[in-house]
């Protein structure tokens, strides 16, 4: 197993899939000649040419719709939307066309396309460049939503997404492209559904996805070493459909739950998980579940305000200690 970066994992997945299937194409702003804002398409333009690696105009609604239309006829486009903040412009096509066409046509048409987009607060990018929007995408029937927390998942989920006959939204994070991790040397397809136990524990379950998995892992370490609390960490790499069985299983074991998300509450991944816990295993709970999330404000520019607005591992630790009556 080689250690590679998250962006290299995405690149390898796209390269392999393009080599395997001539109907796989990539589209997006500055992805071709410039190699992509996050390098996830570096070298593909030279290798596959401009017909399959398309530098698009700044027309998110247009090129997303065009990619979806191509997918009706069997092309498998990987559509990079530079930032989820710009995805608002593409959502009409993603939601009204891609997500609904299979149902509206009684299964006659399908939109096998992949949308990749970077979300999350990076460093002081301000209100219009820091959105987390997974909560919007996961509420749309007909669209799969996955969000890799490490290079292995990035590689395996993207490959599976390209082969999926459903539209798949892949939620990436601005700050994670240079993260290193082991990826199998041989081809690997990650399941598009389910969840992963990232760390086993017995006293409390910490639910995270994408970047917040790393806050949870760090928090679990601190809880173990400094407070003798054994935390289990569940990586919800699939946000739609959510893994109800996995959630039930872990909470039934630990009887306590904390959900960590970078997005704001109200209305978020946290509220949904808590609803599932209530529906699946309410009587297993020893304490009311807690969510850790951003302040309900547009993201501020100033670094101190920004840090105050978004949570991190310390907030997860504090939430757990509160749950145990220790804070």
């Amino acid at each position: 197993m080689a250690e590679i970066m998250y962006w290299e994992a995405l690149l390898r997945a796209q390269d392999e899939e393009m080599a395997r299937d001539p109907m796989v194409i990539c589209m997006g702003e500055d992805i071709g000649v410039a190699g992509g804002t996050y390098k996830a398409t570096k070298g593909l333009f030279e290798k596959y040419g401009e017909k399959r690696v398309m530098d698009t105009p700044i027309s998110e609604g247009g090129f997303t719709g065009l990619g979806i239309g191509a997918s009706f006829l069997g092309v498998r486009p990987v559509i990079e939307i530079m930032s989820v903040n710009f995805a608002w412009l593409a959502m009409d096509q993603m939601f009204n066309s891609a997500a609904k066409v299979r149902y509206m046509s009684g299964g006659q048409l399908t939109a096998p396309c992949v949308f990749r987009s970077a979300g999350g607060a990076a460093h002081q990018l301000g209100a219009q460049h820091s959105a987390r929007m997974e909560k919007v995408f996961m509420g749309i029937a007909g669209l799969r939503v996955v969000t890799p927390s490490n290079p292995k998942q990035a590689y395996g989920l993207l490959k599976s997404a390209i082969r999926s006959n459903d539209p798949v939204f892949i939620n990436e994070h601005e700050l994670m492209y240079n993260m290193k991790g082991e990826v199998p040397d041989s081809e690997y397809l990650h399941p598009l559904e389910g969840s992963e136990v990232a760390r086993t524990g017995s006293d409390v379950t910490l639910f995270g996805y994408n970047i917040s998995v790393h806050w949870c892992l760090k928090a679990a370490e601190i809880l173990q070493t400094q407070h003798s609390i054994s935390a289990e960490v569940i990586d919800l790499y699939c946000l739609s459909p959510l893994d109800r069985a996995g959630i039930r299983k872990s909470v039934s074991k630990t009887h306590r739950a904390v959900i960590a998300e970078e997005d704001e509450a109200p209305v978020g991944v946290g509220s949904e998980i808590i609803a599932i816990i209530n529906e699946e295993c309410f009587f297993e709970l020893d304490a009311a579940p807690v969510r850790v999330h951003s302040a309900f404000v547009p993201q501020p520019y100033n670094h101190t305000l920004e840090a105050a607005a978004i949570p991190d591992h310390d907030d997860v630790v504090r939430a757990v200690l509160k749950l145990f009556g220790k804070a």
Binding site: N85, G126, A127, Q128, H129, P298, H303, L305
Partner: peptide
């Protein structure tokens, strides 16, 4: 990003606003 800035540190480079001078903003 200071409190004395045009958006009191909340906007940053891409979001300068000055309604008094009818500069209605920078948008990203």
């Amino acid at each position: 990003g200071k409190a004395t800035g045009s958006s009191k540190g909340r906007g940053g480079s891409m979001h300068i606003f000055d309604a008094a001078h009818r500069f209605m903003g920078g948008y990203a």
